[in-house]
Design a protein around this nucleic acid. Structure first.
Lengths: 114, 114
DNA sequence: TTAACATATGAACAAATGCTCATATGAAGA
DNA sequence: TCTTCATATGAGCATTTGTTCATATGTTAA
């Protein structure tokens, strides 16, 4: 197969780094959070909720998408515990569940803007 | 089309939020960074580079993937300016380009571990 | 109970994504 | 120069993902 593995690897460095890598479950959970923010339309929803809660209909207007598309995306964000909701009559208001998300957003915006 | 847009939106809240949303280019750039970290195998590569540089071959061993798969993913990370590389003879060493990425990783790990 | 309406969800489809396999590139030593 | 080896890359593919359309759910008011 990979002859390289017999010859060129630096075992010490490899062993040392392997110890520092989070376990698979944690890695997948981290990836899931990044995945939630990796789609521009889904990220825009999160950005829309950064300062105040909104109903599905308002989010659809802000994001220029159909209520259905927004609702599907909100379900994903809800499953990942990134947003929470509360019902008020016929209307459902969504807001961010977690301050960590706000930090992630702020940091990546810094990065983009240098 | 969407009758809802004629009736239920809260124009004031919507207008206020629209002003706070980053422009489309920035939003896409932010999403791109998150997308780079959203795939578990690509995230693992970044995690492997968190503390020290490694050659492609070592990364492949650490991540238990073929050199080819790693090389393809490194190209994506290079394009997004998340990793950089230096050549030393036949070997190419990769390391993280940017401290912002380290902060993002650290923060999401915090989030996962509470 | 019935109508109206905000939201949720399942199915289907087009587009994007990650991997594999084969092959190319570029550097070092014989 | 020729061979070896680390890395890079293109094509093809199976899988995943985001959207649309149709329909369901749940709440309010008549």
């Amino acid at each position: 197969m990979d002859i390289c593995q017999e010859k060129c690897i630096n075992r010490e460095k490899v062993e040392k780094t392997i110890k520092t890598i989070p376990n698979p479950e944690e890695t997948i959970q981290m990836a899931d959070i990044f995945k939630a923010l990796s789609d521009p339309s889904r990220l825009k929803i999160v950005l829309a909720l950064l300062n105040q809660e909104h109903c599905v209909c308002d989010i659809a207007v802000i994001c220029k998408q159909t209520n259905s598309a927004i609702s599907h995306q909100l379900r994903i964000l809800r499953t990942l515990k990134i947003v929470k909701n509360r019902r008020e009559g016929k209307t459902v208001y969504y807001s961010l569940e977690d301050d960590h998300v706000i930090s992630l957003i702020t940091m990546s915006l810094d990065h983009v803007r240098h």
